[in-house]
Amino acid sequence: MDVDAVPQEGNRTMGGHRRVMYARGKDGRMVIVPSRGGEVDETVTLQALERIKEMTEEARARVQAGKTSPLEYWMYAQRLDLPQLSQVTGFWKWRIRRHFRPEIFARLPAKILEQYAWVMGITVEQLKRLP
């Protein structure tokens, strides 16, 4: 990549930051070029975020229909998925899946709710309902 090919159109997911790219200068030497990003990197980040948003909204609809607990909603909202939530809490996946059942979630002891809330960085009150 030559220096003038380094993307500078901007990437709105980068929040105004610039990232280092390595490119070839006029004399043939590789140099560091701070990049504002471009369409390629922006598209794939937005795509990944969009996918998380879709799953979050699908979970919201299921919570409203009484088919799952707000725990599943918050899991996606905080950019986790089932394997990751299992890793950060240390709970087995089947156990978390069980906690997705509204009637079981409603009876969860405070200690477990606190643990979920902590790993997600929200309060127990938030965890209990949809925002």
């Binding site: 790219m21 390595y22 490119a23 590789m30 990197d41 794939v44 795509q47 990944a48």
Partner: peptide
């Protein structure tokens, strides 16, 4: 999404572009 994921690992996760190939150059 799968294809986008490959590109993300290559261009987004601080590689200096081209999946570290320019850095190696």
């Amino acid at each position: 999404n799968y294809v986008g994921h490959i590109v993300r690992m290559q261009e987004e996760i601080g590689t200096g572009g081209g999946g570290f190939r320019f850095l190696y150059a």
